[in-house]
Amino acid sequence: MAATYEKIATTTLGSAASSINFTSISSAYTDLRIVWVFQAVSAGSNAGLRFNSDTGNNYSYTAITGTGSTTVSQRGTSNNQCYFMANSTAATSQLQIFQTDVFSYAGSTYKTLLTTYSGDLNGSGEVSSIVNLWRSTSAVTSVTLLFDAGNMTAGTTATLYGILKA
């Protein structure tokens, strides 16, 4: 029997890689949470995810970002992945964190996500809050966390949690 909040799986990269996969995700929970702590090998990669290996243009987002000196809100439509970094790319200098909640991931509606991005780079950086949409009524059974160019460093970690309602 599933618990109210429990870890489903965790991955720590032993060597640099461009993606992390969680597969065969059980439908036993109500929501999913993903905590991803990463650093880039080289600059220039945007970070995000895909569900069920869907590479179609079925993803979109609305984001608000604070850079330390200004605020900005951006959107993307008909993307081929969920984007979590609307205003920048993954940095090489410091660890950065995504926390993503996937609501009603096994349900029959489109899937909406809430993500916070925390990336202070000791003199630059940003904080963002993002709502993402995956226009699919399929249950989420796999999640691929990915860089769209370049690799994450060895030691990057990602943990998948399940949250169950009463």
Binding site: S60, T62, L114, T116, S129, L133
Partner: peptide, 16 residues
């Protein structure tokens, strides 16, 4: 509260 809705169009919003 942290909330949002995205509709693959201009009708989206994220809130704190």
């Amino acid at each position: 509260n942290f909330s949002g809705k995205d509709s693959n169009s201009t009708a989206g919003e994220v809130n704190l």
